[in-house]
Design a binder for these strands. Structure first.
Length: 679
DNA sequence: CAGTGAGCGAGCTTCCGCTTGACTT
């Protein structure tokens, strides 16, 4: 028996189905060894020697792998073809005590690709393993050295890292751009026109004045706009230029993790986490290819199946085979792009959300091999006095890929127009506009930005978004846009001021360059780490001394009502609060207005004297409690409606968006339904 | 399911990237 080890069990099952009884395929479930969680695990004095442990989660997989590898007469390591995959193979070799394991790689999961890979085994690439190790150690050093600094200087439980700190910084920078933004006034001018004996009105907008182009912000005030209107009084309107041509719109490439997360957010309002969970389910069913990828490659088999499907269902004019080059920085391309495993729609029963995501993935895959959409476009220049107006029209001529992957576009029809033709003006429409501040990041746009900058990997985009929210650095509003919190601002300012290099996208870019050199063999990993760590450790030591918690204190100009000493705003574990400078003699504090518990106007059912207020836990979760705490400890998770249960008199609370239930768990009204569950 | 800061000191928090379950609410 020959044992093949891959990273993912779903992949293992597929491969096993291609091979005969001689082969057994097992999965490592990702990395099997890592630095210990509870301590640094790196001897910085001894050439950065790492200590590796088998995490508890990996233990049972390792046990099985050990058992089966002993039985096997050959072990073949088939982990992904990238830094991390090579490292997994290396650790498998070490842990399983393999002498000369065969190492194979393939980019697509087809019978022929696997057979070919088995014919061409190689050995483990030690340099690639070293590059991974350098990456791992660097991230550990940054994360496990900077986080404790934040615990000391700001608040316990905080974290910093090469990826998450840059993500927060992007939000912080945007927040400042928005704060600093000053809207600018500008005007546009539109003309509604029609032909002499034709009621069809069309609009044209001002593009030139006195032979010069009018840019977007070219008209700055109402006065300027009115001067143009004056100029146009009684003018003759005449067609000056007619340009008609066919334009094409090409389909987008198939999905990668990043573009799938972005598109599912835009079209389906899924969070990155939801998208990945659904994609995982589809992957395990065999409905789609692997969902953590930065590759745009499609297997030859996949391409021909898409071509065949398009031809048979829509006709040969809908077929347009293409390949796509991966543009993203630092892409490792161990997998294919994300696509449906079949061009035909799957027969597997899918849940609503699964089906929506699946249809999106399949549509985009088919579209990538489909013909461009064709439009009849027209651009008409119209002269009036010293102005040129332009009307543009577009009508769909051939839908092409839009058949399988609909996209929004505007259609505007223009009447047939001839050069020199005179036109009649129905109306001039000047309108005032203001420039808009840059848009806040959403999950989708932040992931896009991270990918463009080469920060993070497909497997970490969604977890990174969760981390920066869990730490309380950023918040999401009702439109799912990110806002920087006070804490996020304080931590980012601190890091940017004292560790500017590390919270910069360039840090990752440089790291990647160095890792590539290590992988090529033109650089050694220990000197690379030393070059980073020595100055870093020195700075860190200095900053522990220099940076005082007091730098975060802000004067208020007010006096303490109890002892008359000045009051200051401090930054504590739970955000900002006002405190007396005479501490610890005077312990006077007050909450800032923005943090004050919000009253709901409902009296406390337990003590009768208190009022119910909305509060936040340490983790930031909202709950509803009596304002006389700690004398009265009445509290609820769900928001009370203010009404009382008919049967037991307890408060009714909201349960989900529209449902209402009784807050008393023993209330008879709940007993029938059994325990209520939330989706 | 709060009540923040100082300092004492024990014991704790934390990274990124690879992969899926296994807990209850």
């Amino acid at each position: 028996m020959k044992l093949i080890v891959v990273e993912s069990p779903a992949k293992g099952r597929t491969i096993e189905s291609f091979l005969g009884k001689d082969y057994k395929v097992l999965s490592s479930y990702g990395h099997i060894r890592d630095l210990p969680k509870g301590k640094l695990g790196i001897d910085v004095e001894k050439n950065f020697e790492p200590t590796y442990v088998i995490p508890t989660k990996a233990r049972k997989h390792v046990t099985l792998l050990k058992k089966e590898s002993k039985k096997a007469n050959e072990v073949i390591l088939a982990t992904d073809e990238d830094r991390e995959g090579e490292s997994i193979s290396f650790h498998l070799k070490e842990v399983l005590g393999l002498k000369n394991p065969k190492r194979i790689v393939f980019h697509e999961i087809t019978k022929s690709a696997i057979e070919e890979a088995l014919q061409n085994p190689r050995t483990i690439n030690e340099q690639l393993v070293e590059a991974q190790q350098a990456r791992r150690i660097l991230d550990r050093l940054v994360g496990y050295k900077l986080s404790p600094f934040l615990w000391k200087k700001v608040a316990r439980g905080l974290s910093a890292g090469r990826v998450q700190s840059v993500a927060v910084r992007l939000v912080a920078d945007r927040e400042r751009e928005i704060e600093a933004f000053k809207p600018e006034e500008y005007w546009s001018l539109e003309a509604l026109l029609h032909k002499l004996n034709d009621a069809l009105e069309f609009s044209a907008s001002l593009v030139k004045k006195d032979g010069k182009a009018v840019p977007k912000l070219g008209i700055k005030s109402k006065e300027e706009s009115e001067a143009i209107l004056q100029d146009l009084k009684g003018a003759n309107w005449q067609v000056r230029e007619v340009e008609r041509k066919e334009t094409r719109r090409n389909p987008l490439p198939p999905f990668t993790t990043s573009t799938l997360q972005q598109t599912a957010a835009q079209r389906l309002h899924f969070s990155a986490k939801q998208t990945m969970q659904l994609a995982q389910q589809l992957y395990e069913m065999g409905a789609i290819t692997y969902h953590r990828t930065d590759s745009l490659n499609l297997s030859a088999l996949a391409k021909t199946s898409a071509e065949k499907y398009l031809k048979e269902n829509y006709g040969k004019e809908y077929v347009f085979p293409r390949s796509f080059k991966t543009r993203s920085k630092g892409a490792q391309e161990a997998h294919e792009a994300i696509r449906s495993t079949s061009a035909e729609r799957t027969h597997i029963k899918l849940t609503g959300p699964q089906a929506k995501l699946y249809d999106l993935i399949r549509g985009r895959f088919l579209a990538s091999q489909a013909a461009p959409a064709l439009f009849d476009s027209a651009s008409i220049d119209i002269a009036a006095a010293s102005c040129i107006f332009r009307a543009t029209g577009q009508t769909l001529k051939f839908d092409g890929f839009l058949k399988v992957y609909p996209m929004k576009f505007e259609e505007t029809e223009l009447p047939p127009l001839q050069k020199q033709e005179g036109l009649i003006l129905s109306k001039l429409l000047p309108s005032q506009h203001f420039t808009q501040p840059p848009a806040r990041y959403t999950e989708a746009t932040l992931v896009k930005m991270l990918e463009e900058q080469g920060i993070g990997r497909p497997s970490t985009y969604a977890p990174t978004l969760s981390t920066i929210q869990e730490r309380g650095y950023v918040d999401k509003d009702a439109q799912r846009r990110f806002h920087l919190t006070e804490l996020g601002a304080v931590v980012t300012d601190l890091l940017v001021e004292h560790f500017p290099d590390i919270v910069d996208a360039k840090f990752t870019a440089e790291m990647e360059e160095n890792l590539d050199k290590i992988a090529e063999g033109t650089k050694e990993w220990q000197p690379m780490l030393k070059a980073f760590y020595e100055p870093f450790a020195e700075t860190l030591e200095k900053k522990y001394e220099d940076v005082s918690k007091e730098t975060l204190v802000v004067e208020t100009g007010e006096k303490c009502p109890e002892c008359g000493s000045p009051l200051v705003v401090r930054f504590g574990r739970f955000g900002k609060f006002t405190a007396c400078t005479n501490f610890p003699k005077c312990r006077y504090t007050e909450s800032l207005e923005e943090n004050k518990p919000q009253q709901l106007g409902i009296s406390c059912p337990r003590c009768g004297n208190g009022e119910i207020v909305a509060k936040r836990t340490k983790r930031g979760k909202i709950f509803y409690a009596c304002n006389r705490y700690p004398e009265c400890d009445f509290a609820l998770w769900n928001k009370p409606t203010g009404e009382k249960c008919e049967k037991c008199e307890a408060l009714l609370v909201e349960a989900g968006k529209t449902k209402i239930k009784c807050s008393n768990k023993e209330c008879p009204s709940l007993q029938k339904k059994g325990s209520s569950s939330t989706a």
